[in-house]
């Protein structure tokens, strides 16, 4: 079996270049590639375009890369909970493309699946539709959206094996499976890395063909944005 294992996050990001387009998995702070984000901060790579549902918070996740001005453009669906982001956006320092969440998910899925464009009802009659082709199907209007691809996709999974197969846990799956398919190079960091053969093939969420580099991460903080408990 092909072995995708690398030494760690610094090796994973070694060839990520200034101006690269990255996809980063996660919804809020849930299921984000913490170790690889730290490595990107250490490397100091610049002028990044980041495709990610959210932009982290001020002091965690992608928010850290915004603070260091490593990001010039974000493609996201929701960027609340981040004051530095909002400041850079309103002042024009950061370019932002906001997309409906389902459109973002599907554009990424399409990128990985070789589908250059598709029609969706989301955003018809809104700013999102400006400059996009509208077509009617069965009397309802839809707009044309194109695929998204990345130079590097960076995903986080719960378990992975040396062949690059991935299993996610809970709602930490979110955007990770589609992003894994849409990167020229896909980097996967996992909480537990096992030899090929140990994961049940029936349970694999992302088949290893989509993953080029895998490593076992460490010191996961898994920060919680809204800690809510039974009163």
């Amino acid at each position: 079996m092909i072995n995708k294992v690398i030494n760690g996050p610094d090796e994973a990001v070694a060839d990520i270049f200034d101006g690269a387009t990255l996809m980063l998995g996660g919804f809020g702070l849930c299921g984000i590639p913490e170790n690889t984000i730290d490595a990107l901060l250490r490397k100091g790579v610049k002028r990044l375009t980041c495709i990610s549902n959210n932009a982290g918070v001020d002091d965690f996740g992608i928010g850290l890369m915004l603070k260091t001005r490593q990001v010039v453009k974000m493609i996201s669906s929701y960027v609340g909970e981040n004051q530095e982001f909002e400041r850079q956006l309103l002042s024009g320092e950061l370019e932002v493309e906001l997309l409906p969440q389902g459109t973002l998910a599907e554009r990424i899925r399409a990128g990985g699946a070789g589908i250059p464009a598709f029609f969706t009802p989301a955003g018809v009659g809104t700013e999102v539709a400006e400059g996009k082709e509208i077509r009617e199907f069965n009397g309802k209007k839809y707009l044309l959206e194109s695929w998204l691809k990345a130079d590097f996709s960076i995903v986080k999974a719960w378990k992975g094996d040396t062949a690059g197969n991935l299993i996610y846990k809970g709602t930490a799956r979110n955007f990770n499976p589609m992003m894994a398919t849409a990167g020229k190079i896909t980097i996967a960091e996992v909480e537990e890395l096992v030899p090929a053969g140990e994961l049940d093939p029936n349970m694999i969420h992302t088949p290893g063909i989509f993953v080029q580099r895998i490593f076992q991460g460490s010191h996961y903080e898994k920060r919680i944005e809204q800690r809510t408990t039974k009163s």
């Binding site: 669906s77 409906p100 389902g102 999102v128």
Partner: peptide, 17 residues
């Protein structure tokens, strides 16, 4: 506009369908 930019999240997909 000019005040609050948080993004639409899933709202546009939800209301469209």
């Amino acid at each position: 506009p000019g005040k609050m930019v948080k993004g639409m999240g899933g709202a546009m997909d939800l209301v469209a369908s």
